[in-house]
Design a protein around this nucleic acid. Structure first.
Lengths: 336, 336
DNA sequence: CTGTTAGCGCGTTCAT
DNA sequence: ATGAACGCGCTAACAG
């Protein structure tokens, strides 16, 4: 019985012939070690947890399935179960984390949708519990994360618009409690600072990451005396809403108003006109986060598990050169 | 020690005062029963499995997150872990099921995206393993399921189009190996039979449930000598692709061509024009499936766990009366 | 009503 | 290189 365990778990103090014999016998008898007994003996849960966050407009977020799929196969290969729970933001959320951690139900956690001040992360750090974030957070204590370079992405997108001559670029950001929203604002600001352009704070907005919200905000912006000539959106869904508002006013997208989205959802390339946006590899990101957690559990210090992936600008047809702004003088000339 | 277990697990052979004392002490000491030890003693996994299927165009499926969320809270309240894995269709998929079932990693399973002939279901029935399907399948052996009434939904949608005077209604269905695709075809056929309308099989198509596929199929249909006056789509994404193709030809949606989608994705109401489609409550469905599995584990026979929910037609602006078909005679009169 | 004892099925010391 | 005995932390059967 002992030998069986040692053979199956690949110990080196068992002869190869014996091992082969054991494996054959196990195969023939259809024997599978009971994972629960194994877990009790080892004192490990052999499971990883992921808590699905619920925030506004989350239905529109096709990412979690993709993220899950990316992670699932990695964990499966490592013989770890992936346990998924759900919790709304707030005290209930932390209770779920406590149950998982203090109930020793999981050996590690993936924290998704990080917030700039994130109590979940502070809690896990306090408990010295292994985890990897998908996204960054404000905490200065070392921890593992994989994040997209939101700052760089918005820097690039903003620079592109500035390069096209735009000077009034609205930012339709995500809710500012989300860490990536802050990063994006910084990228946006940096591009302006580098170009020596002053930002009009009245055209900085927060959206709920869905179509309707983008539509409403765009309408508000277009009502301004001096509306923005370009709008930089936090998600493609937001951008689609913006496009709808712009079209409804008879303005031409990419000519009268330039629009850039974020995420590169499959629909983006089929929008009318096709949407310029930033692409990121969700599936591969999920797999990588899982691998990082494996490394963390194997002892790699968190400082060595910090990655930032660049998004890729996908240039399509919703952005174009800024219309030269007419001076009052020119305006008179043009209309007479 | 025994008393502790009995008190905490709510047995009735322990005095209330003792129970209170035990609970207080447990609270004070921060004691949490070790779930792994409990599982070993009970011989249960206290976990439920869900295998994410991967098929064509799945990225566009925003449902799984919603479905997961619906299930997760129910299982959490029942102290069951929800274990999520992923597998592509095929032999690998069945291996994942085997690992879960034969490795005693879960007490029950949710089977999503059922196929008309579904080996997963046959396997689970053979093993006499508890499970609930989200969707139906061709098996005649009794098993638990929650399904949307796809047949009724497409019956209703088709009847609506027929009522509007349409006689050439294209069906842009999902891949026919999926059970719901077959049900939808039947609903479509029944509506035609009831109205005494012959179906032209050349306008029956299969799409990949995404925008691009809908676009391509619509273009093919519109090239016909006698193109359909209405198109019934398997998903809203498909319908959006159809709309794009129709618009590109300068045809007016809801006038020249009527379109009905399926799913009522959030974007549907903001499409141009707003999309008529069928709505279903994914989140509540997920919760219900979870409850049904709980009942199944508690001993309810599968025959008593079969539910079919009606989808709801959401009438918006992509469908309208069929243009009266001109006879050659009328055509001559109209053009002279 | 409550305490004692055995056993769930592994992994792992310690002998051999 | 292998086998015997113990323990992981809990629940359940059995006494008291």
């Amino acid at each position: 019985m002992t030998t069986v365990s040692r053979a199956l778990n690949g110990y080196d103090d068992v002869s190869e012939t014996t091992r082969a014999r054991v494996i054959d016998a196990a195969q023939a008898a259809g024997y599978r070690p009971n994972p629960v007994a194994r877990r009790l003996a080892l004192g490990r849960a052999e499971a990883i947890g992921l808590v699905l966050p619920r925030s506004v407009g989350d239905f529109v977020d096709p990412f979690f399935t993709e993220l899950l799929r990316g992670m699932a196969s990695v964990f499966e290969d490592a013989n770890l179960d992936l346990i998924v729970t759900a919790a709304p933001e707030g005290p209930a959320e932390l209770r779920v984390y406590r149950r998982l951690v203090e109930g020793r139900r999981v050996d590690g956690l993936i924290v998704a949708r990080t917030r700039s001040h994130d109590e979940r992360i502070e809690y896990l750090l306090d408990q010295d519990f292994p985890f990897v974030c998908h996204g960054r957070t404000g905490s200065d204590r070392p921890h593992a994360y994989l994040d997209m370079d939101n700052e760089g992405g918005f820097l690039e997108a903003t620079q592109r618009l500035i390069g096209l001559g735009h000077r009034r670029i609205a930012l339709i950001n995500a809710p500012m409690n989300l860490a990536f929203a802050q990063a994006r604002l910084i990228g946006y600001e940096r591009a302006h600072a580098d170009a020596g352009i002053e930002i009009d704070r009245t055209i900085l907005c927060e959206s709920d990451l869905n179509e309707e919200s983008g539509h409403d905000i765009a309408n508000r912006l277009l009502d301004f005396d001096e509306p923005p000539t370009a709008m930089l959106c936090a998600s493609d869904f937001t951008a689609l809403g913006v496009m709808r508002a712009v079209k409804a006013r008879g303005l031409e997208i990419g000519v009268d108003v330039s629009i850039i989205g974020y995420d590169d959802i499959p629909l983006a390339q089929y929008a009318d006109p096709p949407l310029t946006t930033m692409h990121q590899q969700i599936h591969r990101g999920g797999a990588r986060v899982a691998e990082m957690l494996l490394a963390r559990l194997a002892g790699t210090p968190p400082e060595d598990l910090q990655e930032v992936w660049p998004p890729r600008l996908v240039s399509r047809a919703t952005d174009g050169p800024a219309k030269p702004i007419k001076t009052p003088q020119e305006f008179v000339e043009a209309t007479t």
